[in-house]
Amino acid sequence: MKLQGLLLLLMRLFLGALFIYSGVVKIINPAAFAEAIDNYRMLPYLFVTLMAIILPWVELIAGVLLLIGRWLRSSSLIIMLLNIVFIIAITSAIFRGLDIGCGCFSVSEDAAKVGVLRLLEDILYLILAIILFRSQTIESAH
């Protein structure tokens, strides 16, 4: 079971670092992130601004918790929920044919566009978060 433990550790560190990076990039420029969210045309502008202010910090805090190994169940659950939201948003943008920046790990206008590749990436992160969440649940049950 050592290999399994190592894999879980690597997943945890990877997701933690990824979401810390993702959060910091957006915290530096909330206005640009708000514009990226608004480009999806899914939310009233008030919610766009609130999301632009709060969501990056949720990513950062959940990332730090994953990295330091505290509150692993809640932090991996948060990452799961975030990825589900991202997957819904990207899927909807693809179906509406929107040619917009993803706003995922960069808020610049040259950032990666929404598309199937970004969708697959988020599905991968969702799977990693589910595996981490389940491993914690099983661990706490023992």
């Binding site: 915290i27 530096i28 420029n29 909330p30 206005a31 640009a32 992130f33 708000a34 608004d38 009233p44 502008y45 008030l46 601004t49 609130l50 632009a52 202010i53 709060i54 969501l55 990056p56 910090w57 949720v58 950062l60 805090i61 959940a62 918790l65 509150w71 809640s74 932090s75 948060i78």
Partner: peptide, 26 residues
């Protein structure tokens, strides 16, 4: 986590020159 994120978010957004203005209107 969400409460801490909201606190930190509102505090830093106000200080950030790239901060977003909370508004109903675009």
């Amino acid at each position: 986590v969400f409460a801490a994120a909201a606190l930190l978010g509102f505090a830093t957004n106000d200080l950030n020159p790239n901060g977003v203005k909370i508004s109903i209107n675009r």
